[in-house]
Simulated assay, not measured.
Amino acid sequence: MRALALTLALTAAPVAASELSSSITGKLILPAFEELAEDSRTLARAAQANCDAQSGALRAAYGEAFDAWIAASHFRFGPTETDSRAFALAFWPDSRSKTPKALAGLIRSEDAGIKDPAAFAGYSIAARGFYALEFLLYDPQLSTAGTPEYRCALTRAVSTDIAATSQAISADWQQNYAAELRAPGSRYQTEDEITQELFKALTTGLQVLDGMRLGRPLGTYQKPRPDRAEARRSGRSLRHVLVSLNALEPLALALAGGDADLQEKIAAGFAKARTKAEALGDPVFAGVSDPAGRFRIEALQQEVKDLHILMREDLGPALGVAAGFNALDGD
């Protein structure tokens, strides 16, 4: 992935502190959202060409666009938060099964409003985004519910909406928010505030890996929850962990700046987590219900926890910032 390719470049040529935010914005953030916009356009075109749930081309385009979102999703501030765009792309976790209920309701009523992109953008976020499209492409019930014609229209509506939302995020970054992040101004008063925003994106991304992507299916030893694994219908649960690790590492290395020792620790930590993830061979974390499989998944989770500790206890103090509050911290 593009993010991994940048890892070596950022390690070999650390930027000065005054250029940190500008470098991260130009080399990591903008390219991530440009890729999301491009891959989402390809997804919308694939749905127009063939909307059948079994279409190999459509499923491949869906996977590429979903990868791009996971790789960019830790930058969850600014344009991604405007108009609840992040939730419109990724309504998860869905603990009350709102997405299948919303989709079933649309299919049952054959709501004609889905054919108007502007109208569909105002529909419930539970019926929009990558997780909704996963149900339409991979769920045995919803991928065959109702008439083929309506399912086709709904698949196209969701795909077109993903593309429009992704393009809006990318354009907003290019035209407005990038300048805010490159230098103190109206939104951020100091360089430290900008650095803290970026550091919080990193630590929140690791929290999502630990508590949600791994923690939700692990549940407890007495009550594992394999059915809570992210994107399990499309077999993407483990893939999302790897894509996220590969996207978070360049950000962590960039934030470490010219501290070669800290960069070495960070790279080693990510390498250990990646090695354990790649060795799992369990794409949907079904092994959480088996003692041996569970131990291996917990070992991966521990590597992610160790990375989080490294960021909090070493990288944060080196930057002179703390992670700060985020939505995952609860009340």
Rank of each mutant, 00 (worst) to 15 (best):
S95P: 12
R45V: 13
L255C: 06
A132L: 01
D227G: 12
L251P: 06
D314Y: 07
L136M: 15
I70K: 08
L218S: 05
A163C: 11
A231I: 07
Q263D: 02
Q141R: 10
A5I: 03
L10P: 00
E193T: 12
R182T: 13
P93A: 09
I125G: 00
A163E: 15
R213E: 11
M1R: 08
A86Y: 08
S159P: 05
G320V: 05
D314C: 01
S40N: 05
V284F: 08
A119N: 05
R239N: 11
G316W: 06
A61P: 05
G129A: 10
L181C: 02
G258K: 14
L253H: 00
R96G: 04
A60G: 08
Y150G: 01
G219S: 04
A126M: 07
V243E: 02
A322M: 07
P117W: 14
E303D: 15
L36G: 01
R233F: 11
L58M: 02
T7I: 09
S21L: 10
S237N: 11
A86E: 05
I125S: 12
S97T: 03
G219C: 04
Q175N: 14
L300T: 11
F325E: 12
M1T: 04
P31A: 01
Q302V: 07
L251F: 03
A132C: 10
L209P: 06
G330K: 11
L10Y: 00
L58S: 01
A127L: 13
T82S: 03
A183G: 09
K272N: 15
D172F: 04
F91P: 09
A179R: 15
D139W: 01
A145Q: 05
E193P: 02
Q196C: 02
G211D: 10
L209Q: 13
S166Y: 08
F87I: 13
L28H: 04
L310D: 06
E193V: 05
I29Y: 05
L30C: 01
R236Y: 03
P283D: 11
A88D: 03
A71G: 10
D331H: 08
G258L: 03
I70L: 06
K101R: 15
T165I: 15
A13I: 07
A183V: 09
A168E: 11
S21C: 15
A53H: 10
A157W: 10
I29D: 05
L133Y: 07
G146I: 06
A118L: 14
A145W: 04
Y62S: 07
V288D: 09
D331I: 02
V243W: 00
Y62P: 00
A37K: 02
Q196I: 01
E134L: 06
W69I: 04
E81Q: 08
A183M: 09
G122M: 09
I162M: 13
G63W: 10
S73Y: 05
P79V: 00
S95K: 14
V321H: 12
Y138Q: 06
A260D: 11
A121W: 02
F33P: 08
G122E: 15
A201D: 03
A286C: 02
A171R: 11
E313S: 12
W69S: 00
Y62A: 05
L251M: 00
Y62R: 02
L10F: 01
G105D: 07
G215C: 09
T160D: 15
D67F: 04
